[in-house]
């Protein structure tokens, strides 16, 4: 589509404005993490690394990071298995009940988090299950399945079944076909889906509020606790800044490997 030069410039300016708004709160938090004052007051003043030092020595943030990573890895791992299986079943076969099952897969992300949260919590309570890491992982994996499912299903729909048929014709059994033909072609979709599932679990708070054991503080729960303590706010700012900076590594790697497919959405041409 032909766009005039002014039209292109308008689009560029629009993008720049959106990015400024998108990053302003994050930059503000990063600036406050080295602020001398303890509050959010404008304008920020001074420069100190005290809070970074203090955050480094405090056990709370480190434990919360560990808990979030643990939950995210479990949830993403389970979602990878279930989401891939569901993607194969729903894209490669047609059968009675396919439509309701494909709706059941998207339901956990399409229904508001609070509904998932109270449904699962009241089910746990009714069954007499105490809240623990397991209950939290069950809840997170439930809404992560659809992320992996969508990435893998989009890839499978694009893959020509003729390649797999060729493998079978050449004598490959289903395991060999999967290992040498199908899996290599869907590896980047798995990676993109897995990473995004991890990211969603890592920052989830609503379902987590209801299904985590009281003593098990994930990072968002730790944030929620510490925002009400004025003395802790600088440390909260440090931890938040640290997570953003650290997340550039997985995001960059995923970008390199999957060539632009790291989305929660049907994949792109990249």
């Amino acid at each position: 589509m032909y766009l005039s030069r002014p039209a292109r410039w308008c689009l560029r300016i629009w993008c720049a404005l959106v990015l400024v708004v998108l990053y302003a709160p994050i930059v503000y938090v990063a600036r406050l993490s080295v602020n001398t004052a303890k509050n959010f007051a404008w304008p920020p003043s001074g420069f100190t690394l005290t809070w970074w030092q203090r955050a480094y020595h405090e056990p709370g943030p480190r434990l919360a990071l560990l808990h979030s990573a643990q939950t995210g890895l479990w949830a993403a791992g389970i979602a990878l298995v279930l989401g891939t299986l569901a993607a194969f079943a729903l894209t490669r076969h047609s059968f009675f009940g396919r439509t309701p099952i494909s709706l059941a897969v998207v339901l956990p992300i399409a229904l508001p988090g609070i509904v998932t949260a109270i449904a699962l919590l009241s089910a746990f309570q009714r069954l007499g299950i105490d809240l623990s890491l397991e209950t939290l992982v069950v809840a997170h994996a439930t809404f992560c399945v659809v992320i992996v499912y969508n990435n893998v299903a989009a890839r499978l729909r694009r893959l020509a079944p003729s390649l797999e048929e060729a493998s079978a014709d050449l004598g490959g059994d289903p395991f060999q076909t999967f290992r040498f033909v199908t899996f290599p072609m869907m590896r980047s979709a798995l990676l993109a889906g897995g990473l995004l599932a991890f990211a969603l679990s890592f920052d989830e708070i609503i379902v987590t509020t209801f299904t985590a054991a009281p003593s098990y503080k994930t990072l968002p729960l730790w944030f929620a606790d510490n925002f009400s303590r004025p003395n802790a706010i600088p440390v909260v700012n440090v931890v938040a800044t640290f997570v953003v900076l650290a997340s550039t590594i997985p995001v960059y790697l995923a970008q390199r490997i999957s060539d632009g497919a790291a989305t929660f959405s049907a994949e792109t041409r990249g």
Binding site: A199, D203, V251
Partner: peptide
Amino acid sequence: TMPLWAGYLV
């Protein structure tokens, strides 16, 4: 996509 990592509450 980066802002998704920055913490919803933060």
